[in-house]
Amino acid sequence: MSAQKDCEFLVKRARELVSDDPCAAKAWLITARTLYPADFNIQYEMYIIERNAEKTASAGRLLYDMFINFPDQPIVWREISVITLLEVVSGLVPPNQEAPKTPEDQVRTVIQTLVEQSLFPFFPPFLANQLRAFTDSRDDLSLGHVVVLLQYDWPQGEMLFLKAVDKICQQGSFQYENFFNYVTNIDMLEEFAYLRTPEGGRIQLELLPNQGMLIKHHTVTRGITKGVKEDFRLAMERQVSRCGENLLAVLHRFCINEKIIIIQSLP
Rank of each mutant, 00 (worst) to 15 (best):
A164Y: 01
Q170H: 13
L160E: 06
C169H: 11
K167C: 00
F122T: 12
D153I: 01
F120C: 10
L150S: 02
N129Y: 14
M159P: 03
P155N: 02
H145V: 00
L141N: 08
D136A: 11
V147M: 05
F134K: 09
A164W: 00
Q170K: 15
C169M: 14
G157L: 00
F161C: 04
A164V: 02
V165S: 01
L114K: 13
S118N: 15
Y152T: 04
T135V: 14
D140W: 01
A128P: 11
Q156W: 05
R138L: 09
P155C: 02
V148Q: 00
S118C: 13
V115K: 07
G144L: 00
M159N: 11
E116C: 12
P124C: 04
T135G: 14
C169P: 04
E158A: 13
V148K: 01
K167H: 06
H145D: 07
H145I: 01
F120P: 05
P155A: 01
I168S: 01
I168Q: 04
A133S: 10
S137T: 15
H145W: 09
L162V: 05
G144T: 02
A133K: 03
S118E: 14
L131R: 05
H145T: 01
N129F: 12
P121F: 10
Q156V: 03
R132Q: 11
F123W: 12
D153H: 08
L149H: 04
T113D: 08
V115Y: 06
W154I: 00
M159I: 13
E158G: 01
F120V: 08
T135I: 10
D153S: 13
G157Q: 02
F126P: 10
S142R: 00
F134E: 08
V165L: 06
L119T: 07
P124T: 03
F122K: 14
L114I: 07
L119H: 13
L119G: 09
D153W: 10
E158L: 04
Q130L: 03
F161M: 12
F126D: 06
T113Y: 09
L160D: 05
T113V: 13
Q171H: 13
L114G: 09
F134R: 12
Q117C: 14
P121E: 03
F120G: 14
L141V: 12
V165G: 00
P125M: 03
T113N: 09
Y152G: 07
L141R: 11
A164E: 00
L127P: 09
C169T: 12
P121I: 09
F122M: 12
L114M: 14
P125I: 06
M159T: 14
F161R: 05
V148W: 01
S118V: 15
K163E: 09
F161Y: 15
N129L: 03
L150Q: 05
L119W: 09
M159H: 12
H145S: 02
L150R: 07
D136V: 12
V165I: 15
E158K: 15
R132F: 00
V115I: 15
G157V: 03
S137F: 14
D153N: 14
Q156C: 07
L141W: 06
W154R: 06
L131M: 10
G157A: 02
Q171V: 03
G172L: 09
S142A: 15
R138P: 03
L160Y: 03
P155W: 06
V165R: 03
V165P: 01
N129R: 15
F134W: 11
I168W: 00
K167T: 08
L114A: 11
A128K: 06
Q117I: 09
F123K: 12
R132D: 05
L149P: 07
D153V: 02
